[in-house]
Amino acid sequence: MFSLFWVALLSATLLPGGSEIWLARQWCLDQPALALWGVATVGNTLGSLVNVALGRYARRFQDRRWFPASGKQLARAERWYHRAGEASLLLSWLPVIGDPLTVMAGVLRLPWWRALAWILVAKGARYALILSLAQSWLGPYC
């Protein structure tokens, strides 16, 4: 389960990776589903909080020429984020858009505890669904 924690954590950062297969593999090895759910959820949530921290840190460089977003782009992202709201972090589990959402939460200085709450709900629901699917689809094959 230690490996599941690290796979889940790293796959939630800007690094490429996926923890779903590793979770299903661990479940097939007769690890307790509730423990797997908790480890994967905590690891993936912490990985997303790394992205939030990176966004918070990156904001101080917004006036630099090499900063990846112009002032206009940043203002547009802020308007979108304020319109969509912090509840958009419920999509933080999605590939491709999930990581930028968590980075944007950091750039826009969303309070830590609110980012944690939204991300934890999203990641927990995702892993519950994955375990449910693994039990129904993979059960006879494990």
Rank of each mutant, 00 (worst) to 15 (best):
W6I: 02
E78V: 05
V96C: 05
A128F: 13
Y127S: 08
P111S: 06
P140V: 09
I97S: 05
L9V: 06
R83F: 13
S92A: 11
L74V: 07
T45R: 07
L10T: 01
Y57C: 14
A53H: 10
L116P: 09
P111Y: 07
W112T: 04
Y57K: 15
A128K: 13
G98N: 07
G85C: 12
R83G: 13
A58W: 00
S132I: 09
C28A: 14
G38W: 04
A134H: 04
V96K: 03
Y127P: 05
M1F: 09
E86K: 06
S19A: 11
L108G: 01
A58E: 07
R76A: 00
Q73K: 08
L14P: 06
Q135F: 08
Y81R: 09
L29D: 14
S92L: 01
Y141M: 12
V121P: 06
V7K: 00
G139I: 05
L4R: 01
P95D: 11
W66P: 02
L110P: 01
L101H: 11
V121T: 12
T41S: 11
G71K: 12
W37A: 02
W37K: 13
P140G: 09
L29P: 02
A84I: 11
D63F: 07
Q31C: 03
W27I: 01
W37S: 05
W37D: 04
L34K: 13
W113P: 07
Q62K: 05
L4I: 00
F61W: 15
R64L: 09
L89E: 05
P100L: 05
A69Q: 12
L120S: 15
A69M: 07
R59A: 12
G124H: 06
A35N: 14
V103L: 00
R114D: 10
F2C: 10
F61I: 11
A128V: 10
Y141K: 12
A87F: 04
I21F: 10
L23G: 03
F61N: 13
